[in-house]
Write a protein that binds this DNA or RNA. Structure first.
Lengths: 334, 334
DNA sequence: TTGTATGCGTTATCAA
DNA sequence: TTGATAACGCATACAA
């Protein structure tokens, strides 16, 4: 048995397709009795409208897309989970595309954009210029984890203030003087802002400017390798402020290998507060980000844009704050 | 400027849309000169065919879907990454849907299925009966991490043999006698098979049957809680075989808290070989699964089904094997 | 209150 | 070698 179309329903109910369409969309006047007949026919045939037909007829595709660099760490998976929770609830489809640092991904993204009503574009995927071009091409875009571009609204998390607070904590409360920042500010706006907060804390404390960041690529192995280098070197740092949790856990491994105790010999902090670090040994001091909500809000903002509503906050910054556990030197349970 | 359609191209090239279509699809005879004119028009107008039109005209939607329970751990994200690598390379779209243990997800999945050419359905999402119904409804389905149902091909990883080997290693090489399995066999076919291998190892070694599994729910916290219970109890186990890595790391935390040393006082093993465990302290002995390839192969199988090709292996089982590090008691580096 | 006819952008059939 | 035209499934202006 073929899948029934709107004509089949109309025939069965003894009406025209227009009437069926009206019943389906709840628009326009339909006599009670007629409506019931149509509804009955729909039920009997197990009819479900083809969203292809709908989309082609100009009703939008009821689909959102997200463009991310890759699915290596937990971060983007959580962003996607947040978006998915919203799209699923609203009966929309969610399409995903990883750029994987490919060169010619402009076309890919453009092609991708054609299949959705709007796009969430994360940091470290496509350059601002390309975002601007998308905007000009009437593609609805929402930026995630990066500042607004050319009128495209952004949704992101706080970075500067928590980094400042965290670093100040290490300096003022635990007396650290030789701190290093592990992460590459050039890699993403988020990391850049964290670095800024790190620097500011030094200024605020009247310390000399910190040494340049230890450029590392956000994965655990990068943290491990960076720490191995640092811990083997002459002037060993007293505290490592890592740009994310995975690198911090990499530092844990290098420290264990070198016989360096955390936090007695080395304070370590992360960023993200991924589930694993709460049960790390010792529990990691980090900065909690509402990543899933970030995805949800991005999707929500995108939907508003698509509906033509005014976006209330074109640059929404969600609060994130330090979680002091034990790797910074704080006492267990206190 | 509106987005050009096939008529615009035809008009510009001074031909009919049929000819344009032929050039586009490389089918049917087209004079060299004509083709060039059409190609020029396409280029000048920046024309790109609408996939909506294509799909409606019956060419398929060039989209694959995956249904998963949630994005909590690294596992499903990696599966998705594997699928995405294939779909992106082939210019297909990838749609995702999480069931989140929702009740009435039958309709959601059905609706979802209408938007794609085929579906990868993972374990712990929808019941076999529902999969069978999808199959009957002419939805192309490939199962992932669960056995074939009603003719739907499956792609999964080895479980029994590695579990047998791993457990035997603990028993024979490290002399363990009081082993417990942490995980719920009822939760997924994968876990059930791992439990079977665990049991078989006891039989093979001539030991009495192991105690019942410590039912825990795959997340780190569940492992932590389970281990806390076990380590506080009277008859403390000597080895914990965990159904996945996250739970094993939870065990790490509980052990540290209880002053139990790994592996001296307690051997621990995981499953999956997620990146983090390689740099755990101590490095975790686990079973490596080619999860990303699993996703890729599932997508590949699905594409074959869609193209109507014979699926070479209706029940593809990818090999997975133990990685002996230090948490089982093996020496560093050997 | 209901129906007719047309457009959306493509592919495919058949005729020229 | 090319073209006119009919699907595909739906929404909607317009007519009745």
């Amino acid at each position: 048995m073929e899948r029934p179309n709107i004509y089949a329903v109309a025939a069965r109910a003894g009406v025209s397709i227009t009437t069926v369409s009206r019943v389906l969309n709840g628009k326009g006047p339909v006599a009670r009795r007629t409506r019931e007949q149509v509804l009955a026919a729909i039920r009997e045939l197990g009819y479900q409208p083809s969203w292809l037909g709908r989309a082609l007829a100009g009703r939008g595709q009821a689909a959102l897309g997200i463009v991310f660099p890759d699915l290596a760490g937990p971060y983007h998976a959580e962003v996607i989970a947040g978006m998915e929770s919203l799209t699923a609830a609203q009966g929309q489809a969610l399409l995903i595309l990883g750029t994987h640092g490919r060169d010619r991904c402009d076309e890919m993204v453009l092609d991708f954009a054609r299949r959705v009503d709007g796009l969430v574009v994360t940091a470290r995927t496509i350059p601002d210029a390309e975002v601007a071009r998308l905007q000009d091409g009437e593609v609805r875009v929402v930026l995630l984890g990066r500042p607004p571009v050319n009128g495209a609204p952004a949704v992101r998390t706080e970075n500067f203030a928590p980094a400042l607070k965290l670093t100040t904590h290490l300096i003022a409360d635990h007396g650290h003087r030789r701190l290093r920042f592990v992460g590459d500010p050039a890699l993403s706006p988020d990391v850049a802002e964290r670095w800024e907060g790190f620097v500011q804390a030094h200024r605020d404390a009247g310390l000399s400017a910190p040494r340049s960041p230890v450029r590392a690529n956000l994965r655990q192995e990068d943290g491990y390798l960076a720490a191995r280098r640092l811990l083997g070197g002459a002037s060993r740092p007293g505290a490592l402020v890592c740009a994310n949790d995975e690198m911090a856990l990499g530092v844990y491994a290098a420290a264990a290998e070198a016989g360096v105790r955390i936090p007695q010999d080395l304070a370590v902090t992360g960023w993200d507060d991924i589930p694993l670090v709460r049960y790390a040994v010792p529990p990691l001091t980090t900065v909690h980000q509402p990543v899933e909500e970030l995805g949800r809000r991005a999707a929500d903002t995108l939907v508003r844009r698509i509906l033509g509503e005014e976006v209330p906050e074109p640059d929404l910054v969600l609060p994130s704050s330090p979680v002091f556990r034990e790797s910074c030197g704080c006492r267990p349970g206190g």
